[in-house]
């Protein structure tokens, strides 16, 4: 394998990971504010269909992405309303929505199956695209990839470097304390849950209009649960989450390459990789394995390793809020 091939593979890994990166950022924002949106799998499916159908019917990619964002936002709004106003279990509502989104997409998508449709065009950035190695990987992509990359940086900066981001995190960490200091916790939770949901919707359209063009039943099935697991792996940080999404994409790409080289190994072994990885990675970051591992690591490595391996969820994640 020569270097051009390798560069092409890295470029395609980044493209394949872009929707996951977007969904992971959206869910990270929502969970940081204290709302678990467990509906991701159904929400991705229905928004992928909505994005594809809207773009096909109107001929406008932008309307496709907007329709998808609206679907994702509505799903998140239902979760937020159910937990923040009606004080119901977020996990239960999210689970039911995940199932419902799946069935709705199967039913409504029956007339859109395997139709040719519009797709996001490639858009190479002048000058930057000529940088050796990095140019072809990062800058000969399309708007979805650039959006995903910018979103990671913007989300990180917003969460950890702005006052609004601090208030967002306080709503998820210590809502009672934030409330007594005048932070409108419930309002913030609504806003960021819906914003996160809209991003998940955009991720759905990123599949059906760019990365996995078109629609078929169960088009993105499984990816929502993987995104939720990556948020945990990412320790509720957009940077680590994006890294997780890219590593996931890379592992899948590696499995595809290996499968071509070793056709005698059953295909099923390669399909099992994402799920085995999910278990392994969650065990690794759970702390039960990380803590003894860190204790044995050389002192110089301990700090960076801890940053990579350990993370606690926002303290009030999924908790109801007593604000009256």
């Amino acid at each position: 394998m020569d270097s051009t091939q390798l560069i092409a593979i890295f470029g395609s890994i980044l493209l394949q990971s872009a929707p996951l990166i977007i969904a992971v950022c959206g869910e990270t924002i929502s969970e940081r504010a204290g709302v678990i949106n467990l509906s991701l799998d159904g929400s991705l499916l229905l928004s992928a269909l909505a994005g594809f159908a809207a773009a096909l019917l109107t001929g406008s990619l932008l309307l496709g992405f907007l329709a998808a964002a609206a679907v994702g936002a509505v799903f998140a709004l239902i979760v937020a309303f159910g937990s923040l106003h009606l004080r119901q279990n977020q996990v239960a509502i999210g689970f039911v929505l995940a199932m419902l989104g799946d069935s709705l997409s199967a039913f409504l998508g029956q007339n859109y199956t395997r139709l040719p449709g519009p797709s996001v065009p490639a858009w190479h950035i002048p000058l930057l695209k000529d940088i050796p190695v990095l140019g072809p990987i990062l800058f000969r992509q399309d708007a979805v990839v650039y959006f995903a990359l910018l979103l990671v940086g913007a989300t990180w900066w917003f969460l950890f470097r702005t006052r609004a981001g601090l208030e967002l995190r306080s709503a998820g960490e210590r809502p009672e304390a934030a409330f007594t200091r005048g932070v409108a916790v419930r309002k913030l939770r609504y806003i960021y849950a819906v914003l996160g949901g809209a991003l998940v919707g955009i991720a759905g359209a990123a599949y059906s209009l760019d990365v996995k063009i078109g629609w078929a039943e169960g088009h993105t099935r499984g990816m929502g649960w993987i995104a939720l697991a990556i948020v945990i792996f990412g320790g509720w940080s957009p940077l680590r989450g994006a890294l997780g999404a890219v590593l996931f994409g890379a592992t899948k790409a590696l499995a595809t390459v290996l499968q071509r080289s070793f056709p005698q190994v059953a295909l099923v072994a390669f399909n099992a990789v994402p799920w085995l990885l999910m278990i392994l990675v969650l065990v690794l970051v759970s702390g039960r394995l990380a803590a003894p591992l860190l204790a044995r690591a050389p002192a110089a490595l301990r700090r960076p390793l801890r940053g990579l391996l350990q993370a606690a969820p926002p303290a009030a994640l999924g908790q109801p809020l007593d604000d009256n």
Binding site: L38, G222, W225, A272
Partner: peptide
């Protein structure tokens, strides 16, 4: 209990592995 993996995620991964295992048995 031992691995610290929430039962939702452990369970989902195991569901998919069970499906793949069935497919493997049927085709193999």
């Amino acid at each position: 209990t031992r691995g610290g993996v929430h039962e939702i995620f452990g369970g989902l991964a195991l569901n998919n592995l069970a499906i793949l295992f069935t497919n493997y048995l049927i085709a193999g």
